[in-house]
């Protein structure tokens, strides 16, 4: 599963096509609203997948980085009157520093210690956000101002005029989130194809072997850990501006687990797979509402069965299925990857 993925993929055009088709097929404010959130979370998960799928490390505290981005933006713009872009960058810098400080000593060790460390760090951050109400609004949450750049404000409650077209705020935000997701994927793909990515795949294969041939594994792992944390922070900032209201629940351990689940469900190491994972996991609560009190049971059951019967994740399993039934010659460029 780890090394079999081809790194050159026809996926990006397909992703763009899907993103363009969504508002045409589902021309509905509610669906677009959900799709916008999905794109932002999917971008987060694409970053997390770099860590899980390529560096072979599990972060059990990624939601805390996401929340730090969200709260950083909320507090700096709301309480201290900053404009959103510097606030976002400042929060990301803070997250990067924290990830670096924790990751540096931990990633020198072999094994799964990063998951323990991020578990601890994540929960401490969640507790601080919950307790320091004077700064964060406490458990009841905090409102966030709309996104703005150089005086231009992007709010889902406004309408925008562009070349004589009237675009609703929801559409505009969807477009922004789509661009962010494509950017996130593009950056991730380039990282994977870079020397760093190759070194990391070597690490995932066998750390000792990689080290023997002179790859400084801990250095690369640290780099990728910091990058994935920044992914989370930046998307957290956008998510906060988009939803307009955030609570400490964003930082919880359960939310971290949710993010990891998206990666594993979609397929570790498959950039497009984890996007599908994110979309499905966010869609499930909406789809299962009719089960009412059986909702939780169904959710657990679906998660369990999917992982039992598709242990490599949705996309890798499906693409393997496609390959088996369509020999390579017949198959045109499908969206597998």
């Amino acid at each position: 599963m780890r090394l079999s993925m081809p790194s050159k993929m026809p996926g990006l055009p397909v992703l763009v096509l899907v993103l363009l088709l969504v508002p045409i097929i589902l021309n509905d404010e509610f669906y677009l609203d959900i799709a916008t959130q999905m794109a932002l979370i999917a971008a987060t998960v694409v970053g997390l997948n770099l860590l899980v799928g390529y560096a072979g490390q599990v972060s059990l505290g990624h939601a805390a980085f996401f929340a730090m981005g969200a709260y950083g933006s909320a507090i700096l713009t709301g309480t201290y009157g900053w404009t959103p872009v510097p606030a976002l960058l400042c929060a990301a810098l803070l997250v990067a520093t924290l990830a670096w400080l924790v990751g540096r000593p931990i990633l020198r060790l072999k094994g799964h210690y990063l998951s323990m460390a991020t578990l601890g760090l994540g929960i401490i951050i969640a507790i601080v956000i919950n307790n320091e109400g004077w700064l964060t609004g406490g458990p009841d949450g905090i409102p966030v101002q709309p996104l703005s750049l150089m005086g231009f404000e992007l709010s889902i409650f406004d309408e925008y005029h562009l070349f004589g077209l009237v675009i609703s705020g929801t559409h505009a935000w969807y477009a922004l989130a789509g661009v962010l997701l494509v950017l996130a994927v593009w950056i991730a793909q380039n990282l994977i194809d870079s020397p760093i990515g190759r070194a990391l795949r070597a690490v995932h294969g066998s750390e000792v072997a990689a080290r023997t041939v002179g790859v400084d594994t801990s250095h690369y792992k640290l780099l990728i850990f910091v990058i994935s944390a920044v992914y989370a922070s930046v998307m957290g900032s956008f998510f906060a501006h988009y939803t307009g209201f955030i609570t400490p629940q964003l930082a919880t351990f359960e939310h971290s687990i949710e993010l990891i689940t998206m990666v594993v469900l979609g397929g570790m190491g498959s950039t497009y797979g984890v996007i599908i994972g994110a979309v499905l996991l966010l869609l499930l609560p909406q789809l299962l509402t009719d089960f009412h009190e059986y909702e939780m049971m169904m959710f657990g059951l679906i998660l369990m069965l999917t992982m039992i019967f598709m242990p490599k994740g949705l996309l890798p399993t499906l693409s393997a299925l496609v390959k088996r039934h369509w020999p390579a010659g017949v198959r045109s460029s499908g969206p597998e990857g």
């Binding site: 509905d28 404010e29 609203d33 609570t247 909406q286 509402t289 909702e295």
Partner: peptide
């Protein structure tokens, strides 16, 4: 009726669904 499980994000989405869908 929808169950938001105590999560503000879910609550926002379900409120949106109730209002718009």
């Amino acid at each position: 009726h929808y169950d938001d499980g105590g999560s503000a994000s879910e609550a926002r989405n379900f409120a949106n669904r109730l209002l718009r869908r």
